[in-house]
Amino acid sequence: MSAMADAGSHIAAVVATSTCAHCQREIPSSNIDLHSVHCARNLQKCEHCGEMVPRKLMEEHYNENHAPVNCSLCKETLRPEILDLHKSEQCTQRMVACAYCEYELPAIDIHEHQDVCGNRTEFCQTCKKYIRLREWIGHEMQCHVSSNGSEESSSARTFPEREVRPPLPVRPARAVPAAQHRRLLFTVAVTGIAVMVGSILFQKESF
Results as ranks from 00 to 15, higher is better:
2 S>Q: 15
2 S>R: 14
2 S>K: 13
2 S>G: 12
5 A>K: 13
5 A>D: 08
6 D>W: 10
7 A>Y: 06
8 G>D: 14
9 S>G: 09
9 S>T: 06
9 S>M: 13
11 I>H: 07
17 T>M: 07
19 T>C: 11
22 H>V: 04
23 C>P: 00
26 E>I: 06
27 I>M: 03
27 I>Y: 00
28 P>E: 12
28 P>M: 14
33 D>G: 09
35 H>G: 02
36 S>D: 02
36 S>Y: 00
38 H>I: 04
39 C>V: 02
40 A>G: 06
42 N>K: 10
42 N>E: 08
42 N>A: 11
42 N>Q: 09
43 L>H: 02
43 L>K: 00
44 Q>E: 07
45 K>W: 01
46 C>W: 03
47 E>R: 13
49 C>L: 05
49 C>P: 01
49 C>M: 05
50 G>A: 06
51 E>Y: 08
52 M>R: 02
53 V>K: 03
56 K>I: 04
57 L>M: 15
58 M>F: 03
59 E>A: 08
63 N>R: 15
64 E>S: 13
65 N>A: 07
69 V>C: 04
71 C>T: 01
73 L>A: 01
73 L>F: 02
73 L>H: 01
74 C>K: 01
76 E>F: 02
76 E>C: 04
77 T>A: 11
77 T>G: 05
77 T>V: 15
79 R>F: 11
85 L>P: 01
86 H>W: 03
89 E>S: 05
90 Q>H: 15
90 Q>S: 12
90 Q>D: 06
93 Q>P: 02
94 R>H: 04
95 M>D: 03
96 V>R: 00
98 C>A: 07
99 A>N: 14
100 Y>V: 03
101 C>E: 03
102 E>L: 06
103 Y>W: 08
104 E>W: 03
104 E>L: 04
106 P>M: 05
107 A>G: 03
109 D>Q: 08
111 H>Y: 07
114 Q>H: 02
115 D>T: 06
115 D>M: 15
117 C>P: 01
117 C>H: 02
119 N>S: 11
119 N>E: 12
120 R>T: 06
122 E>Q: 14
122 E>G: 05
123 F>N: 08
123 F>Y: 15
124 C>H: 03
127 C>G: 00
127 C>V: 00
133 L>R: 05
138 G>A: 15
139 H>Q: 05
141 M>I: 15
143 C>R: 00
143 C>S: 06
144 H>C: 07
145 V>I: 11
147 S>W: 05
149 G>D: 10
149 G>W: 04
150 S>H: 15
152 E>D: 10
153 S>Y: 12
154 S>G: 08
154 S>C: 13
156 A>K: 14
157 R>V: 12
157 R>C: 11
158 T>Y: 14
158 T>C: 11
159 F>W: 14
160 P>N: 10
161 E>G: 11
163 E>P: 00
165 R>Q: 04
167 P>Y: 12
167 P>C: 13
168 L>M: 15
173 A>K: 10
173 A>F: 11
174 R>T: 04
175 A>I: 08
175 A>V: 09
175 A>G: 03
176 V>T: 08
177 P>S: 12
178 A>Q: 10
179 A>R: 11
181 H>I: 04
181 H>F: 14
183 R>G: 04
185 L>C: 12
185 L>Y: 10
187 T>C: 14
187 T>P: 00
192 G>N: 11
193 I>R: 13
194 A>G: 07
196 M>Q: 14
201 L>P: 01
202 F>G: 06
203 Q>K: 15
206 S>F: 09
